[in-house]
Design a protein around this nucleic acid. Structure first.
Lengths: 243, 243
DNA sequence: CGCTTCGTTGAAACACGTCAATAAGCGTGG
DNA sequence: CCACGCTTATTGACGTGTTTCAACGAAGCG
């Protein structure tokens, strides 16, 4: 029964730390056997950071990897003169870090309160080379991120400001909730400030604000307290986003 | 001597087809042993296509993968109303195709004359699961493509038209030649038409043309026959691109 | 040669950015 | 409790970079 280490997902030798963890199922940890998980979790440490915390800069993610347990992380790039662009948003249970490379070129910063499960870089690097299944999960997540990045290139390059804002709201509406798929009516807290949204869409905060107002007056969305958004009809929002 | 299949790169059982192949060294095929190469090459077929050939649509890349032997392939996305965006350019010896997914969402089209080495999808999919080294190469290429895509998101979202065109010329200048690194003076044929460049940069062809003229009049580049570009000082071009 | 495709250039229109004022939310402290 | 400062968001007026519309030139090809 125990002859094969890569046994059932719910075998009893799963570390306590991992038992209720989302990454254990949908994330990269799902590729690991019970014994591997045990080995990894002994080196893992959890922490919670406030919004706006740099994760890549201060040796946080250069010397380690992490799984996102909850919250939203923004990946940013910055030009020499200060212009900034958000090049990716990561939600739980995404894997954070760039294998095979010391310098990341992109900064990672918590957009909301974020809970992380971090691992020393060396441990993961070794596991990647020893566990093909883990490598495969990483490949799949990377391919998905590539698809997303390319999808956003269309938004950045070819959509109007109105479509951009609608596209962003649609992205959040479909990503932030743990599988509220097929729902037509959704409601959520925006994980990003107007400045962040602007940096994500290649716009200014004024333009973002104006377009949100337009969507509100057209009854495509309603907003409370600047952050709480309700979308009565997701299809109508998608149409505004040219999706 | 033959006990270990993953022997020297230059072992004698390398298929004739692969012996002068770039992909054999820098591409994904470098992950394969002589016997694996032999097995793969028996199923492979080479072909050359003219510029503007759809590679993803007509069952070319949906049922198969390919290595680019020479030329440039553009990956495009298109909105319902016809707006188009190029989301990636691929050069030799890049691997073409999207593992783990039947529908690609993005179209692949030859920008120049392109020589391909194509493989049946099933063969590669099996090899991926059997050869961790191959999977690793794919992961590395995918990570590189992701880095590139994110780099272009900055260009699309935050750069001016002048910077965009300079950025594009810089990309071509540094990618098209087989390692003319560290050269300050480069000269090349543009692999893309003005319309393609516009679709790549999220601009119109008129704006691209105007910005190229500006760069020409500022002696940052010189152009002959609309396609042949000479860059006397790569650093000056990079500066214009805000790189 | 005409025909088509590709690229350049000009003038006008407009979407978005810039500058600026105001309001709203929120924590701190008197 | 209100006063105060600070950050965040909204709204308006104006300026400008890019698009749009249009004409023209150059190159490839029957």
């Amino acid at each position: 029964m125990m002859s094969e280490p890569r046994a059932d997902v719910h075998n009893s030798d799963m570390p306590v730390l991992c038992q209720a963890c989302e990454a254990r199922h949908r994330g990269v940890c799902g590729a690991l056997s019970g014994t591997e998980l045990l080995q990894l979790s002994s080196k893992a440490s959890r922490r919670e950071v406030v919004p706006g915390t740099e994760l890549a800069a201060d040796a946080e993610l250069t010397s380690s990897y992490a799984n996102i347990l909850s919250g939203v992380v923004k990946l940013t790039k910055i030009l020499a003169d200060g212009r900034q662009q958000i090049v990716g948003l990561q939600f739980a249970p995404d894997f954070l870090g760039r294998p095979f490379k010391a310098t990341s070129e992109t900064n990672a910063e918590s957009a909301t309160t974020v809970r992380l499960c971090t691992f020393p870089r060396a441990v993961i690097d070794r596991m990647i080379s020893e566990t093909p299944e883990l490598e495969r999960r990483l490949l799949q997540q990377t391919l998905n991120e590539l698809d997303e990045a390319r999808g956003w290139m269309v938004t950045l390059g070819r959509k109007t400001a109105a479509e951009k804002v609608a596209s962003f709201l649609y992205l959040i509406a479909t990503h932030i909730n743990p599988e509220s798929e097929s729902a037509t009516n959704v409601s959520f807290e925006l994980p990003l400030t107007r400045a962040d949204i602007a940096d994500f869409l290649g716009l200014t905060i004024e333009t973002v604000s104006r377009q949100m107002t337009k969507l509100r007056k057209a009854d495509v969305i309603s907003i409370e307290n600047n952050r709480h958004v309700t979308v009565p009809d997701l299809e109508r929002l998608a149409h505004r986003a040219s999706i």
